[in-house]
């Protein structure tokens, strides 16, 4: 149906890189999101202000602009640092800059998701756990995280789908991902539609599989809930 003229393996290679960048970005965004949510709910005013600024400012700017800022600005920052410390030159590279930006941007969205999920866990349970003598980390691990997962999953799933599609932008800062591979193949064969359509189909497959897995995960997370008879 689609004649890729021998460029199929190259596109597939790019797809693997796209998926790797997206997964790494997801992990980082969950980390940033948890920190952001805990800071937003903390009793310390400076932490709350900082987290509020983070989530508001990041969500007001397009991801492409932030990516360009981190890619070019981050390299400059690293250059300054290595020059000052007398270290060797370090190349940030599009993968590191891209993953960092994806994590940072979607961390802001995750923070909002997690904040809501944390608030959905009854405060009495946390108090009860504390009263049993559990430390803050044990409460987090045993009571808060397992229960907020259920409320957070739909939001995390949506953020993941947006993040996955945003990885296409990494080709703009020079990552050798699927979109760039398609551009190379398109230039060589003069059949741009064929290759960009193939890339679109791979993205469609990835989003479809994600949606199915997320639905299964949500069912699993809700297994303890009472179902209407």
């Amino acid at each position: 149906m689609l004649d890729l003229q021998g460029y199929g393996p190259s596109i597939l290679e790019g797809a693997v890189l796209t998926l790797r960048a997206a997964l790494a970005g997801l992990l980082l965004s969950i980390l940033f999101g948890l920190l952001g949510a805990l800071a937003k709910l903390s009793s310390s005013v400076p932490l709350r202000v900082l987290a509020g600024a983070y989530t508001t400012l990041i969500r007001g700017v397009p991801d492409l602009v932030l990516m360009l800022l981190v890619f070019f600005g981050g390299q400059m920052l690293v250059n300054d640092l290595t020059a000052r410390m007398g270290w060797e030159h370090v190349d940030v590279g599009p993968f590191a800059a891209g993953v960092l930006t994806l994590g940072f941007i979607y961390g802001a969205y995750m923070a909002e998701t997690f904040r809501g999920a944390i608030l959905a866990v009854p405060a009495g349970q946390l108090e009860a756990a504390r009263a049993f003598g559990m430390g803050p980390f044990l409460v987090l691990r045993r009571i808060l995280l397992p229960q907020m997962l259920r409320h957070a999953l739909p939001g995390v799933g949506n953020n993941w789908l947006v993040l996955l599609k945003a990885t296409a932008l990494l080709s703009v800062i020079g990552l050798d991902d699927m979109v760039r591979k398609a551009a190379l193949a398109a230039g060589a064969t003069r059949q741009p539609f064929t290759f960009y359509f193939a890339v679109a189909l791979v993205f469609l497959a990835l989003t479809t599989v994600s949606t199915l897995l997320l639905a299964a995960a949500e069912r699993w997370a809700r297994r303890g809930e009472a179902r209407p008879a």
């Binding site: 599609k165 932008l169 398109a186 741009p192 539609f193 064929t194 960009y196 359509f197 993205f203």
Partner: peptide
């Protein structure tokens, strides 16, 4: 289900293929 960037490329670069 697909990125806007890819949709744009399909139209901008791809239309001339036909």
């Amino acid at each position: 289900g697909t990125p806007l960037l890819v949709q744009l490329f399909m139209i901008y670069y791809g239309a001339g293929q036909f």
